[in-house]
Design a protein around this nucleic acid. Structure first.
Length: 495
RNA sequence: GGUCGGUUGGCCGAGUGGCUAGGCAGAGGUCUGCAAAACCUUGUACGGCGGUUCGAAUCCGCCACCGACCUCCA
């Protein structure tokens, strides 16, 4: 029955049994956002995936150290010394200090994470908080012969690295010679020995604001170095899982591996995990394409392509309905479906609380329920298959509904019912991280008022005063409360 | 051009060599004074052409189409 967790490792391109380096401890590093702008929905999808992965590892009993960085040092938009510093250009745009930009969008990012019910990482280090360590790693790489200084900047020497029998490009399946052919060497004007070399440290131009002193003069770190530094600092030279969006595979993660091996002489990551992209109406959502929706726009519905707002948990469910390694597409239809699905899951959870074991055991039901209970872990152990998990939960919900409609009696053993309760709720709330979004803070008061109203309506109905009865129902409908006239009286539900 | 991935029923979305996830929509039903909601039941599928096999949507080959990455992005 007990299966073991398997993870698809992007490095080896196959599913592997997950064996932590030092059980029960697990080190998980995820590349966080660059805080120069509002996070868009694609970011939310990635971080939701890793939130689910973190939650499941915790559910399995692992003690997880979850590190997710904040990139707050303004690196350039490419490694060739061209492009702009995103944070600085945003600060000019908004007339704010670079660190005000960083603060503003870090706070915004945290707000969004909370909205989507993501757990905080256990460590959330910043790039600017680790300048010293980054300088140290750059020095080590120079000493080890994998980097060189050039005109106040430091570059990683990809050729020297590969000459030492390492394979730059192995993660993304790239061949260095072909990459070289793809780049055009800049006729000796380049500071770099080879166009494929990437920056570890960049000399700051006079107008550059974010700058720090270093052995090579004033400058700022290259954009791959922070992750190598912070992952090894908090998780060790070799750690269990490194994750990120698959658009980071090349060059970012490729460079990270090269830096780590170059500095620490050991393979840094045991399992590489990459999440897939989020599309919007079939097209990749990206900042550069300009088709990104902000999380708040989706929730409020304040966007030309939306018909209304969709709740954070609706969106969360929609994301988790597809496997993390598949593309996910946001469409109005998909959102509407997810909205209904969420209600179904939450209703079943509520019904579950009032179920009792009937005492009469139907072996078929007993077996079916046991099966459904076991499936939850089994499908999640297969590379976090939330898609199958949700399907299984829907089936559980159907069974729960059947019991509920049958006088809240379940023809299964008391222990099985208890296990059903805990398993269903564990997976819906703890593993998938969904929340019942109905505000229960005034539930008691509302309950009393509603029972009064429903009593009055009941009298009206007994007197066949349909006018009054329907008036009450319609007015409540306006107030987003729907009445349901069932066999055992009327109940209400907040929409 | 290089690397990788995908093509599943009206739509979304899993998946395995044989026992045909799941959701939404559609159809039928239960409930109701009528509704709504909810619930129950239910049909339709695996891009094309070959091959391996007792058997392939699942493995292999070729073809077609789509996409991602190869510049910054999660």
């Amino acid at each position: 029955m007990s299966t073991r967790l398997q993870i698809y490792n992007s490095l080896t391109r196959q599913k592997e049994v997950f064996e932590p380096l030092n059980p029960p401890f697990v080190g998980l590093y995820v590349c966080g956002p660059t805080v120069y702008n509002d996070v868009h929905l694609g970011n939310v999808r990635t971080f939701t995936s890793f939130d689910m992965i973190y939650r499941y590892l915790v559910y399995l009993g692992y003690k997880v150290r979850y590190v997710r960085n904040i990139t707050d040092a303004g690196h350039l938009t490419n490694d060739r010394g061209e492009g702009v510093n995103r944070i600085e250009s945003q600060s000019q745009l908004e007339q704010l200090e670079p660190m005000e930009i960083v603060q503003k969008y870090t706070v915004g990012f945290h707000d969004v994470c909370r909205l989507f019910n993501m757990h905080r990482p256990t460590i959330e280090p910043t790039a600017t908080g680790h300048i010293v360590e980054q300088i140290e790693m750059a020095k080590t790489l120079i000493n080890n012969g994998y980097a060189y200084e050039s005109n106040g900047s430091v570059y990683f020497d990809v050729h020297a690295y590969n000459a030492a029998n390492h394979q730059y490009g192995k993660l993304s399946g790239r061949n260095v010679d072909e990459l070289m052919a793809g780049y055009r060497d800049l006729d000796g004007q380049d500071e770099k020995r080879h166009s494929i070399d990437f920056a570890l440290w960049k000399k700051a131009s006079p107008q550059h604001i974010m700058r720090w002193p270093s052995p090579w003069g004033e400058g700022f770190p290259g954009w791959h170095l922070e992750c190598s530094v912070m992952s090894t600092k908090y998780l060790g030279k070799t750690f269990d899982i490194h994750g990120g969006g698959m658009d980071l595979k090349f060059p970012h993660h490729e460079c990270e591996i090269a830096q780590n091996i170059g500095a620490c002489e050991t393979e840094p990551v045991r399992y590489w995990m990459h999440t897939n992209m989020l599309n919007f109406n079939g097209q990749k959502m990206s900042k550069s394409l300009g088709n990104s929706i902000l999380p708040l726009e989706l929730i409020t519905g304040n966007h030309p392509l939306l018909d209304k707002g969709y709740s954070p948990m609706t969106v969360r469910l929609l994301f988790l309905q597809s496997h993390y390694s598949s593309e996910s597409d946001i469409t109005l239809k998909g959102l509407q479906d997810a909205e209904k699905g969420l209600r179904k899951l939450m209703n079943a959870s509520n019904y579950l609380t009032s179920l009792v074991a009937s005492g009469e055991i139907q072996e078929e039901k007993e077996t079916a329920i046991q099966q459904l209970i076991g499936n939850c872990k089994e499908v999640m152990d297969d590379d976090f298959n939330t898609s199958k998990l949700i399907a299984n939960l829907y089936e559980m919900a159907s069974q729960i509904n059947i019991f509920y409609n049958d006088g809240k009696k379940s023809p299964i053993h008391h222990e099985t019912l208890e296990t059903l309760r805990t398993t269903y709720n564990d997976f819906v709330f703890d593993v998938l991280g969904l929340l019942d979004e109905n505000d229960n803070s005034n539930k008691e008061t509302l309950d009393k008022v509603m029972h009064l109203v429903m009593d009055i309506r009941k009298s009206a109905r007994e007197n066949k005063d349909w006018g009054t009865s329907d008036k009450i129902r319609d007015a409540l409908k306006d107030a987003k409360i729907s009445l349901k006239d069932g066999k055992e009286g009327t109940t209400y539900e907040i929409e």
